[in-house]
Design a protein around this nucleic acid. Structure first.
Length: 286
DNA sequence: ATCCAGGAGTCAG
DNA sequence: CTGACTCATGGA
């Protein structure tokens, strides 16, 4: 089985990276992580200095986990206060994954106002119904459904499939848009940040949160600062910014405060959210 | 049972 | 611009 060395000066934690809720098609079983990315079924485990893996190329794995990114310099740029400091310590080695763009976009449309176990369930169901089956080892897996596949699916008409609820017509509509727009991926990648964001916001089911997640997790725009209920709580109660009420205000302050890699700061804070919020509750005696 | 979840669309002020 | 309401579903 191939293995990939992890440079001693570059922290990487497979558990932190796959377990923090940025991807939805990975499970850990007996020390090994199993995941489906696009139409590859990947198996990975981390030993002290190596990643042992099968199911994809070294290049794919390096790109997916962004192992060439100099994490230490990213972290030194966002180390602004004890709260991020602690989050960086507790989530040591967390890296932002480079997801396939369509898969990321569709996944986060499904993710709106749902919790992580529920999101995983929806996406697995979606793949099983509309994805391409493929064999790996003894088992059958399902690729993430292409935009083309969803564009000719029944998502728009036959009621609410895949228990996507009200997200179903949004996903269908956006799939049709993307299917009809060849090169969407590369074109968006090359746009300036605000323009790329504006373009994403025109898609059905894509608001500021989903747009920022796609910019961050698929297009490597690390200045994107996705704001969810947890980040709102953290900014308001832990950073003492109860004046920040709207999404755009929180996102702007996040970008100004943490800088170019604000998205990385967001991800570390999100990863450490339970500890942060629990402590702030205790201090308040709630 | 009840509340909430990595929200977005729509419409009213 | 902000606020209120609705949307469908499953997890805790």
């Amino acid at each position: 089985m191939p293995r990939l060395p992890i440079q001693p000066d570059q922290h990487f934690s497979l558990d932190a990276t796959l377990g923090c809720g940025q991807v939805f098609r990975w499970e850990k079983e007996g020390g090994w992580w199993h995941g489906i990315v696009g139409s590859e079924r990947i198996k990975v485990r981390q030993t002290s200095r190596f990643l042992q893996f099968s199911g994809c190329s070294t290049r794919t794995l390096t790109d997916y986990f962004q192992l060439d990114l100099d994490l230490e310099s990213v972290l030194s740029s966002i180390r602004k206060d004890p709260l991020v400091e602690e989050s960086i310590t507790r989530c040591e080695g967390l890296r932002i994954i480079r997801q396939p763009a369509w898969e990321c976009l569709a996944s986060y449309i499904c993710a709106t106002y749902a919790n992580i176990p529920g999101i995983k369930r929806k996406i697995s169901l979606l793949a099983k119904i509309y994805g391409q089956p493929f064999v790996s080892g003894q088992e059958i897996y399902y690729s993430f459904p292409s935009a083309d596949a969803l564009a000719v699916s029944g998502l728009g008409s036959d009621g609410y499939a895949c228990s996507l609820g009200y997200r179903s017509p949004y996903l269908y509509e956006t799939a049709r848009q993307i299917a009809a727009d060849k090169g969407w991926d590369d074109r968006t990648r090359n746009l300036p940040f605000d323009e790329a964001r504006q373009n994403l916001l025109r898609l059905k089911g894509v608001g500021p949160k989903v747009a920022d997640c796609v910019l961050l997790f698929a297009f490597g725009r690390y200045e994107a600062f996705p704001v969810d209920v947890w980040i709102t709580r953290i900014m308001q109660k832990c950073y003492g910014r109860s004046d920040l009420t709207s999404y755009e205000k929180i996102a702007r302050v996040g970008r100004e405060y943490f800088g170019h890699y604000a998205g990385y700061a967001q991800e570390y804070l999100f990863c450490n959210r339970e500890a942060i919020v629990r402590r702030s509750r205790n201090r308040r005696g709630e």
